[in-house]
């Protein structure tokens, strides 16, 4: 008798959920298509709106329902997942290098992917700014203030985060300009990272560390992430500081050809990415505090984005391939300044 009660309890515990289970239906069937967009951390809110708008447009034009599966995480980590077999139809990552690696390792999209869409396949740009606490209590105005003793700087880990690599390069650019040499630049970033108490693996994690856990005096953040934190996490708690110099970030997008072909989504995937360049797409982009490429849309929102002198990855750092090898690969500059001891934050 006891045994029966026990068995009943056990089977109830483990089997009851099965009753309510349904397999996740994937792929395209009949008049519908499904796209898997593997993206980097801060674009969650952006693509929620883009997906809705595009789905409406596509339905109106082609009569086909399109739904989206979204995956977000640190740009480098997401790139690794696609390489390991996450079957993204499109990738929308933090920097070109992360897509280069996918092309190189998997051959699922051609090496010249960046030439296939306008503006280097980057439908918007962004830059790196500072987010400080209300009233700017440590009086942080520019890069030079970040290496003052007693200032805690929050940035994610350049090893895993695309945003963090932009942060690093912007800092390097400032150090080089201020000191006039690479040696000076290296001294500057070494001092800077000595002021970093915790390295999160993604931009969003770093924002949470700064804004929610209240750690640090200044967050090096994507401009859009800084605006979002300012708006979402209680207006008036933070202020954005635009430094004298920063870097032009061009987060690119690409169709992963082989995956899309396999899923029969090549056409809709291409249209989806091109939609980002339309005035409607550019408006959504501007709404989420990314800098639009379209001149008209940009002009309309010019007031919201501070004027900053911007370095570019190609002109100032010789492109992502060179920058990656020099600064971020194993044994690169970042390893040497952090002494190999990455103080990681929350595991994610």
């Amino acid at each position: 008798m006891n045994r029966r009660v026990l068995l009943l309890a056990l089977s109830g515990l483990v089997l009851a959920p099965l009753a309510s289970c349904s397999g996740g239906d994937s792929g395209k069937s009949g008049g519908s298509a499904q796209l898997l967009n593997v993206s980097y951390d801060p674009t969650r809110e952006l693509y929620r709106d883009v997906n809705d708008a595009f789905a409406r447009k596509w339905q109106a034009e082609k009569g086909q329902k399109v739904s989206f599966r979204m995956s977000h995480g640190g740009s480098g980590k997401q790139s690794r997942a696609v390489i390991d077999g996450l079957e993204a139809d499109v990738v929308t990552l933090g920097l070109g290098y992360d897509i280069d690696v996918i092309a190189e390792k998997t051959k699922r999209l051609p090496a010249n992917w960046q030439a296939r869409l306008p503006s280097n396949s980057a439908p918007y740009t962004s830059t790196i700014v500072f987010l400080v606490r209300k009233g700017n209590p440590k009086n942080i105005r520019d890069w030079a203030d970040l290496v003052r003793p007693g200032v805690q700087v929050i940035t994610p880990n350049p090893k895993t985060s695309g945003g963090a690599r932009w942060n690093f390069l912007a800092a390097w650019g400032y150090g080089r300009k201020a000191g006039g040499s690479d040696a000076a630049a290296q001294r500057y970033v070494t001092q800077l990272f000595a002021n970093v108490p915790v390295l999160d693996s993604g931009a969003r994690g770093a924002t949470t560390t700064f804004a929610e856990r209240g750690i640090g005096d200044v967050l090096l953040a994507w401009e859009n992430e800084a605006f979002l934190a300012q708006n979402e996490l209680g207006a008036g708690k933070f202020e954005i500081v635009a430094p004298s110099l920063s870097i032009l970030a061009e987060p690119p997008v690409a169709v992963v050809d082989e995956n899309a072909k396999k899923h029969g989504t090549s056409e809709v995937a291409e249209a989806y990415l091109r939609f980002l360049y339309t005035p409607e797409g550019q408006e959504i982009i501007a709404k989420h505090f990314y800098r639009p490429r379209d001149a008209q849309v940009a002009a309309k929102h010019a007031g919201r984005f501070p004027q900053i002198e911007l370095l570019t990855i190609d002109k100032d750092f010789g492109g992502w391939g060179a920058a990656q090898t020099r600064f971020f690969s194993d044994g690169g500059v970042f390893d040497s300044i952090s002494g190999g001891k990455s103080r990681s934050g929350g595991a994610r």
Partner: peptide, 26 residues
Amino acid sequence: VSVVSGHIRGETNTMPLHIEVLYNEY
């Protein structure tokens, strides 16, 4: 689970992963 999930919303996110997603979206 986080390592093998791929974090596809509504599909390969378990409850703990979904909690992280929500938390990261403020």
